[in-house]
Simulated scan of single mutants.
Amino acid sequence: MSLIRRNNNDRGLVQNRGVDPFEVMRDFLQWDPFRELSRGVAGGAVTGFLPSFEVKETKNSYVFKADLPGVKQEDLNISLTGNRLTISGQRNEEKKDEGETHFVYERGFGSFSRSFSLPEGIDAEHVQADLKDGVLNVVVPKKPEVQPKRILIKGAHEGDTKANA
């Protein structure tokens, strides 16, 4: 790869030959500046584990899903304190036998903890969680009194006897 400085008519732009600009843009758009901090990268090897979460609100509840491959149910802890939901756990590293050569080792292991602040009106007594096929699913229901209710709108002609007279 060589950098060539163009003449002054080009306003000092540098042209980079031999590099696919689409590849550079793809790499840039997929770059997460916090990934290295959160995963604990040391010397190019991933040393931590931080699962990705999906959080959504439905009519009746808040749903939290996390991909936790290799995490056992006994290694998970889910707690609700006030309006703060905390999900923590760990994924243990597999035993490495001497004499084995690892050419690529990108899987992360270790402890993780994620906390989420929930709005008022959750039903803490009926929270449910299950771990199936490596996916954690936590459902935090809303109290019935905070669920949306449809309000009927009366028109000027409904129930108004003077408007019909």
Rank of each mutant, 00 (worst) to 15 (best):
S2T: 15
S2F: 11
R5H: 13
R6P: 00
R6H: 10
N9H: 07
N16K: 08
G18S: 04
V19G: 05
D20C: 06
F22D: 14
M25C: 07
M25V: 15
L29W: 11
Q30Y: 12
D32A: 00
F34K: 10
R35F: 12
R35I: 10
A42H: 09
G44I: 04
T47Q: 08
F49A: 05
E54S: 14
K56A: 14
E57H: 07
N60Y: 02
Y62T: 00
F64S: 04
K65E: 09
A66R: 02
G70V: 09
Q73A: 15
D75C: 06
L76H: 03
N77L: 13
N77Y: 10
R84N: 09
E94R: 08
K96E: 14
D97G: 09
E98C: 00
E100P: 03
T101R: 03
F103D: 11
V104S: 09
Y105K: 15
R114A: 07
S115E: 10
L118H: 00
P119K: 03
E120Y: 08
G121M: 05
D123C: 03
V127L: 04
V127N: 01
L131G: 08
D133C: 01
V138I: 06
V139I: 11
V140S: 07
P141W: 03
K149C: 02
L152F: 10
I153R: 14
I153L: 15
I153F: 13
E158I: 02
G159E: 04
N164E: 10
A165L: 13
